[in-house]
Design a protein around this nucleic acid. Structure first.
Length: 721
DNA sequence: CTACGTTGTTTCTAGACAGCATGTC
DNA sequence: CTAGAAACAACGTAG
């Protein structure tokens, strides 16, 4: 089907043709003929990179141009929200306004009501729904990207609830990977279903076993015995490879090993560019390892890396500078990052209580990364058979069908939180109304029988009443209480809120960072570290040493909570180090964690600390305690001791610069106002730009003279000039 | 007795969403 | 129930 033949707005066609697209892919054409353009719901289950985004763009833009209103595009990752936002920006040429919003990123300061296309993570949209944003009623279309995540254990329920809320109120376009029961999903959404295996770039799949590469069509190729040869072969042919492994350690190890092999295939300019890239990285143990791999044209990629490092690697790989990435599943479903060859080293993964096979759906998503649309005629995805027999892998992952999706609404944590929201934010007034709502969920559609869910719902309601989130009046009607309403808006687990509430009396008596951090670490919303075997004694000792500061009692060794508790103590200790200005590198070394882990911990602690304060406000707060908590929150956010709190409020002054200023004798804003610019410029880390910003922030007219500060150690390039 | 090598034993393991109000090194 | 690498401990031997 030609773009010209589309029954859509002419302006829309023009923009698409300007992209150089004249002809639609068969599944795209089929999708657009399904009735979506007339407002029908659609489930589009096709492989990654086969043009789902274009379909959604056409549907969104046509609808908006024709009817006005808003379209919401839901994604599972913050990084994807940014990616889609950039892509959709193009439509501003037609007068449509595009915005993206996630927990830590808003593309705009203006309120979302002004925008036509809103990209958001599912959780963020759920939160917006709870806050009752007025513009929600203008939403005419919801596009749910990666809708198969409805089957994810911890995040599936959110998506399911959003769709249940919006079903009937807006058109729904659900984009899915190939799943075992797309029909069931389509039935639930009362949607047309378009399924296809078609890909614009052909995909060859095969299994590798000790030197033999068997393609799915039966052809066989011989390679050296070690699977590394699959990677070096791709590099020799001027292409790249993406290697998936199941642990961070493996990713790092294989990156280093492959780096040595790939290195010899690099050109001089490439080597120079790579060294330049490596020099941009920070100084910490993880980055050091990364640098070693990078100079050989290889990088590892996992959640321990900082965001900047991750994007740096992704961009360099896209440019072809980095030849090989070894990755944990971070890359299997993330931003768009195709590669000529994909090598899957592991098909098993450790999951809590043992080794499990990685789901077919996930392996297929990894394989789907093979083949770069603009550069390759085809892509190759190869599974390495190390333990399992090659035949078995071929059967399961290459010829096999992906798993069915199952509703995860009954997941206790998610369910608890969603029921609270229904009562406090969505006007559900009685148990029968609650059941009535649940009847419209995917769970109900799939299981037919609601009795066990109703039973769980009763337990949850009982828990919510018991802990004063909600009230029951004499006729059995629900009534939202402020505690419940705030909990729901803060988007925290009711159990977290309860833990906070229960701890308030003890906290008031003895406010201290260690107690508060352990409290935060003990909630289900916090990610905690695990105490390693040989650390356990240390953290137990620490807990006893600081026992009078804790708001919880130390569990006995036999207690099932013992292990978890030690992890909480460890986590609390990391946070404690952070606010005591222990350098990051030392934190990484002491606790054996990566930069990404620390970032994640701080991000979560920040959010929970805020929530703790907000909830405390509801319970007859004491002003001095409140102030104490606010200060601690600020210390946590900036990673500083109390004495730096004043300085750290200044723009671009974080823990390092604030400490430098303080140690140089500038201990307050007052000191800075009084000081001469030249004096301040002598402080390490304070340059003209920074100082200028500070003056502007303070509303001071002082010219930062252009005089250079003493030059730092020159680089080699300076020397050669 | 010490330094070092060998062998058996234990330990450890992926990822990442949410509030709010503005700006890290 | 299914792995595999690394850290660690125990043991053994040469000098």
């Amino acid at each position: 089907m030609k773009v010209d033949e589309l029954p859509v707005d002419e302006r829309l066609k023009r923009v698409i043709k300007e992209r150089g697209i004249e002809e639609l892919y068969p599944p795209q054409a089929e999708a657009l003929k399904s009735g979506v353009l007339e407002g029908r719901n659609l489930v589009l289950a096709i492989p990654t990179a086969s043009g789902k985004t274009l379909v959604s763009e056409i549907v969104m833009v046509d609808k908006l141009l024709r009817e006005g209103g808003k379209a919401v595009y839901l994604v599972p990752l913050k990084a994807l929200a940014e990616e889609k936002y950039r892509e959709f920006k193009e439509w501003e040429s037609l007068g449509l306004r595009v915005a993206a919003t996630t927990g830590d990123y808003d593309s705009t300061d203006d309120w979302l009501g002004k925008y036509d296309i809103i990209v958001a993570t599912a959780e963020k949209f759920d939160s917006l729904l709870r806050h009752g944003a007025r513009w929600i009623r203008d939403v005419k279309l919801v596009v749910a990207d990666e809708v198969h995540l409805i089957g994810s254990y911890d995040r599936g329920a959110t998506l399911e609830m959003i769709l249940t809320h919006m079903l009937g109120r807006a058109q729904i376009l659900a984009l899915s990977a190939t799943v075992g029961n797309a029909e069931e999903l389509a039935e639930w959404l009362d949607a047309a279903l378009v399924m296809s295996e078609w890909r614009p770039v052909q995909l060859r799949k095969g299994v590798f076993h000790t030197g033999t590469l068997i393609w799915e069509d039966g052809t066989v190729e011989r390679y050296p015995e070690n699977w590394y040869s699959l990677v070096t072969d791709a590099v020799k042919r001027g292409k790249g490879a993406l290697v998936f492994v199941n642990t961070r350690r493996s990713a790092e190890k294989e990156a280093l090993a492959l780096s040595k092999l790939v290195s010899s295939h690099l050109t001089k300019p490439e080597k120079r560019a790579l060294e330049n890239l490596a020099s941009q990285l920070e100084d910490n143990p993880t980055s050091e390892k990364l640098k070693k791999a990078l100079v050989g044209g290889v990088a590892f990629h996992h959640a321990g890396l900082s965001r900047t490092e991750r994007t740096l690697i992704e961009d360099a790989f896209r440019e072809g500078l980095i030849k090989v990435i070894t990755a944990t599943p971070t890359l299997s479903a993330g931003v768009n990052l195709p590669s000529f060859r994909v090598v899957i080293r592991d098909t098993k993964r450790y999951a809590g209580f043992g080794w499990t096979d990685i789901p077919v759906l996930e392996i297929q998503q990894m394989m789907g990364r093979a083949g770069r649309p603009k550069y390759d005629k085809y892509g190759e995805a190869i599974i390495v058979a190390r333990t399992d027999e090659p035949g078995k892998l071929m059967e399961r992952y290459i010829r096999g069908k992906p798993e069915k999706l199952f509703s995860m609404l009954a997941n206790e944590q998610a369910f608890r939180s969603q029921i609270l929201a229904l009562i406090t934010n969505f006007g559900v007034k009685s148990f029968s109304e609650l059941v009535h709502f649940l009847e419209r969920t995917f769970y109900a559609h799939q299981r037919k029988d609601l009795s066990s869910l109703e039973y769980k719902a009763k337990d949850v309601v009982y828990f919510l009443v018991e802990n004063e989130f909600i009230d029951l009046d004499l006729e059995g009607k629900f009534q939202a209480l402020p505690f419940g309403k705030r909990t729901s808006q803060l988007y925290i687990d009711p159990l977290t809120a309860k833990k906070f509430k229960d701890a308030f009396p003890a906290l008031e008596k003895n406010p201290n960072p260690f107690g508060i951090f352990q409290l935060i670490a003990s909630t289900p919303d916090m990610a905690t570290l695990t105490a390693r075997r040989r650390e356990m004694e240390d953290y137990l000792d620490l807990a006893y040493e600081l026992e009078d500061k804790l708001y919880a009692s130390i569990p006995y060794y036999e207690d099932s909570r013992f292990q978890g508790f030690l992890g909480q103590v460890k986590t609390a200790k990391v946070l404690l180090d952070w606010i005591n200005e222990v350098p990051e590198t030392r934190i990484y070394e002491t606790y054996n964690i990566d930069p990404g882990d620390l970032y994640r911990l701080l991000e979560l602690a920040d959010w929970l600390m805020y929530s703790l304060i907000e909830l405390y406000k509801l319970f007859d707060p004491k002003e001095d305690i409140l102030q104490y908590l606010r200060d601690l929150h600020l210390r946590l956010r900036h990673g500083v001791r109390e004495e730096l709190l004043e300085l750290v409020r200044l723009p671009n002054i974080g823990r390092k610069r604030a400490r430098a200023l303080y140690n140089a004798g500038f201990r307050s804003v007052e000191d800075i106002v009084r000081a001469k610019p030249a004096e301040l410029l002598r402080v390490e880390g304070i340059g003209a730009k920074i100082l200028d910003g500070i003056y502007r922030h303070l509303g001071i007219e002082k010219s930062v003279s252009v005089q250079e500060r003493p030059k730092k150690r020159g680089t080699l390039e300076d020397f050669l000039k």
